[in-house]
């Protein structure tokens, strides 16, 4: 994969996205609204991170792998 025009979107989307996510998590932790001692709040943090990774994996699959199938068409 040498087409940077297709890679930059992932960098921007998930780079910018990680900043927004970190701002939100920081707000929750700084205010003590997010209580990491309660299972419910801890689960929420895991889900936020898991959702981020899920979208990153999905985007990568449809950028680096599936567009190159079938191989003969990609070539």
């Amino acid at each position: 994969m040498d087409d940077m025009a297709r890679i930059w979107p992932i960098i921007v989307q998930f780079g910018g996205g990680s900043i927004l996510c970190l701002i939100g998590l920081w707000c929750g932790l700084k205010s003590n609204y997010l209580d990491m001692n309660t299972p419910e709040d801890k689960r929420l943090v895991y889900i936020i991170i898991g959702g981020f990774l899920f979208l990153l994996i999905l985007s990568s699959i449809f950028t680096f792998w599936l567009p190159n199938l079938p191989v003969e068409a990609a070539q």
């Binding site: 979107p9 989307q13 910018g16 996205g17 990680s18 927004l20 996510c21 970190l22 701002i23 939100g24 998590l25 707000c27 929750g28 609204y33 997010l34 929420l44 936020i48 959702g51 981020f52 979208l55 999905l58 985007s59 449809f62």
Partner: peptide, 24 residues
Amino acid sequence: GLSSTQSYMNDWFWMPILLLLWLP
């Protein structure tokens, strides 16, 4: 093609701000 979905894939990043700040 599939890039029509990109508008639907960028909302998750706002979730922490929504759930931990704006919603309360």
